[in-house]
Structure formats: C-alpha cells, structure tokens
C-alpha cells in the first residue's frame, strides 16, 4: 500500500516537474494539461476544489451527512447527504482518501428534493466531504468514517 502510493506520487511529481522546468507550462497549466481539467480525475481534495472553483466553500450546519462512523467494508459505504440550504442545485460528494477523491456530482432538476442516498467506496479511513452548490456559492460539511477493510483494492 505504502510503496504503491509512494511510487505513484513520485511519477506524478516528476512528470509535472519536467513540464514545469521546461518552462513551457506554468504549474497550474501543467495540472490542467494532465487531467484535462476534469475534476473527476483529480488526485487530491485540494485539486478537486480548485477545479470546481469551490476553494472558498463555507462550512455549513445545514448540510446533513448520514454515514456510518465505522464502516466494516470500505467497498460499500452507505452515505446520505441532505441539504437544507435554499436554492440547492448541486450536491457533490468527496471521499477524501481515495485515489480519485471526487465520487459523485448530483445536479437537481425542478422539483427534486436536495437529498441523495448512495453508496461510496472508501479506500481507507477518512472524511466524507459534502459540497453543496446553491446559487453561485459553495457550502461544505464533512463526516469522518473509519474503514476497517479498504474498498479500493489496497
């Protein structure tokens, strides 16, 4: 597990490093190039937030996350996210420790209640982060989940 993630991070770092040092790309551009600006391919929570433009998301207690405190099986973690914020159009769920943290983005149409129940995979213990978009603003909340058996092949 450790060896694998170490290898991966070295590869990513060196590939980006080469492009940056070649002077062609600024660090940000290099990032965009690599993942094609697709937040679903981002490798860290910070990257996801940056790509979604949600770095200044406000913590809110109007977002309710229902997730088990201890998940026996990380491959199936039932998570319910409910937003009580008016004008909620999107709910985004992020599993912080996964290789690709962004799990899902739900866009609600007319008449849909901003509450969603689904099942996540979680590689290891970490936070489930909920991002809610209402109007032009992002709100966020998180809940910790302990995983005793990883669900990402670790």
């Amino acid at each position: 597990m450790k060896r694998r993630s170490f290898l991966k991070s070295t590869i990513v770092a060196s590939a980006t490093g080469v492009a940056v040092s070649a002077g062609i790309l600024s660090p940000n551009m290099a990032l965009a190039e690599k993942h094609g600006n697709d937040p679903f391919k981002a490798k860290s929570v910070d990257e996801v937030l940056k790509m979604l433009g949600a770095t200044d998301a406000e913590a809110s207690d109007k977002i309710k996350i229902k997730a088990p405190e201890i998940a026996e099986n990380g491959a199936v973690v039932p998570v319910t996210i409910t937003s009580e914020i008016e004008g909620t159009t999107e709910i985004i769920s992020i599993s912080s420790k996964n290789p690709t943290p962004l799990a899902a983005k739900y866009t609600f149409g007319e008449g849909a209640a901003p509450s969603i129940k689904s099942r996540l995979k979680m590689g290891k213990s970490g936070d489930v982060i909920a991002l809610v978009k209402a109007g032009d603003k992002f709100y966020t909340a998180k809940a910790g989940v302990k995983v005793t058996k990883g669900g990402c092949g670790g």
């Binding site: 679903f40 799990a103 899902a104 983005k105 739900y106 866009t107 969603i116 689904s118 996540l120």
Partner: peptide, 9 residues
C-alpha cells in the same frame, strides 16, 4: 436528477 459518477462509487 443528473448524477456524474467516478470510480469512487
């Protein structure tokens, strides 16, 4: 409802 998913589901 439109859901965009990744492999983390």
């Amino acid at each position: 409802l439109t859901a965009n998913w990744s492999g983390s589901i």
